[in-house]
Write a protein that binds this DNA or RNA. Structure first.
Lengths: 238, 238
DNA sequence: AACTGCATCTACGTATACATTGTAAGGAAA
DNA sequence: TTTCCTTACAATGTATACGTAGATGCAGTT
């Protein structure tokens, strides 16, 4: 297991829905997606249908379907004679992604604050914030990232808006590699605990506009920091 | 041609990208999507793989791929023995969709205002607004809808944010049938010209926050009106 | 008449076959 | 050596084959 596996487990909402009726198509989709998120297939890596089929011990048909899905989610492109190719994520892409994420998670926060939040999910949010603090104290960035993702994931889920949930998940997946990469390079997210706590307070007190404002500011800052970091490091591709 | 075909042509950004390398898969995707958007396959309608294949004169394989794509876009569901089924859109769905659209188009407007807009696209936006006015004067709601869609489409395109463009397009597709249905039932959109003109002014004068505020208010109002209309009419499904 | 059990049939999931076409290697010419 | 052309190969797009699971319809029982 790679050191990032714990974070990866929570990196997408989809992974919360286990595959009951397992068909090969879903298996292929899950496996390929995981290879990409874990970095086993880095940006630019190519994989032929037959390669994947052989590796996963199935025929090309379900593999093709999985690739179609991954393409539609913006994870790979499909080039006629080169199989699928993992799309690199440029600094520009990250800027675009964070712009959209800012807006989407903003209304998620607003919606949750407006609908009101029950005791149990509120406690879960507070627990995630607490974990972030503990992880920072211990200097464990991976655990911090895990708690951070858990917080954001829960928040979006609480909105109850299916489309919102799906789209945010998709964007997270696309940004995942870059976030993991910069985890060790970025300045320590000292403020994150305070910011998240403030957001929770706004939600708990039923202040939709404030919740949205806080979360948007938060995401905007995080995005800006990340993009500048990538540009500074010349990491235009990953 | 159905009376709504003109509007449909502009209903999605994707249709702007013509199919050069025509493979059967794309043909199937386009054909099925069009059947759904045009209402030839209404909500709840089912279509077996073999039916579609026979109808489109191809084998099941490309049809399956098209169905996978449509499912991922939230247009249909796939049930093991019943083929694909066109997903109904409830009032609740429309509320969700418009919540997300509000946020997405809001940042689109903000982005365009921030980046600045060239003379030509600015003129195109103004032309769309003018067309809306003319259509209203003529009492031609279909033409109004066409101009309205063109305006919003151009605006989102101008943001240059690929993800944003793709996601907005997807949501439009999902909302398309409901919008067409209510076109004749809703109150005449008298204010739309004024509102859009104000948005264009904010963009032209480079005021991102004002542009965003105007557009969000606009979309929020439109969404609210639509949802209330659907609920009042008891149209919980379409 | 309603319900249950069984048989049949069909739609699908997956595998495989086949023709097409892009690619790359290898050779020839400059 | 470099560049262009030819040719062989291999990956893909699409069609088709095949086994399975679930749905449908019928018969028999209550």
């Amino acid at each position: 297991m790679s050191p990032t596996s714990k974070v990866d487990e929570l990196s997408s909402i989809k992974s919360a829905a286990p595959v009951d009726r397992s068909n090969q198509s879903d298996v292929a989709y899950g496996a390929l997606r995981r290879l990409i998120l874990d970095g086993a297939l880095p940006a630019g890596a190519q994989m032929l249908e037959q390669e994947a089929a052989a590796r996963l011990n199935m025929s090309r048909t379900p593999v093709r379907e999985a690739m179609v899905r991954l393409r539609q989610e913006g994870m790979v492109e499909i080039r006629p004679r080169h199989g699928m190719r993992v799309l690199p994520v440029s600094a520009r892409d990250m800027a675009d992604i964070y712009d959209v994420l800012t807006a989407l998670e903003g209304i998620a926060a607003e919606t949750v604050a407006r609908k009101g939040i029950a005791a149990r999910p509120l406690a879960a949010l507070r627990a995630a914030v607490a974990d972030m603090g503990k992880a920072l104290d211990a200097g464990d960035l991976v655990r911090w990232a895990e708690a951070d993702e858990r917080f954001h994931s829960q928040l979006v889920q609480l909105s109850g808006n299916t489309r919102l949930i799906q789209m945010v998940g998709q964007l997270w997946d696309q940004a995942h590699r870059a976030r993991m990469l910069t985890l060790q390079l970025r300045p320590t997210p000292t403020n994150s605990v305070i910011e998240h706590a403030a957001l929770v307070d706004a939600i708990a007190s039923g202040d939709p506009l404030e919740a949205r404002r806080i979360h948007e500011d938060h995401r905007r800052r995080a995005g800006k920091m990340l993009v500048e970091l990538l540009e500074r490091l010349g990491l235009t591709q990953l």
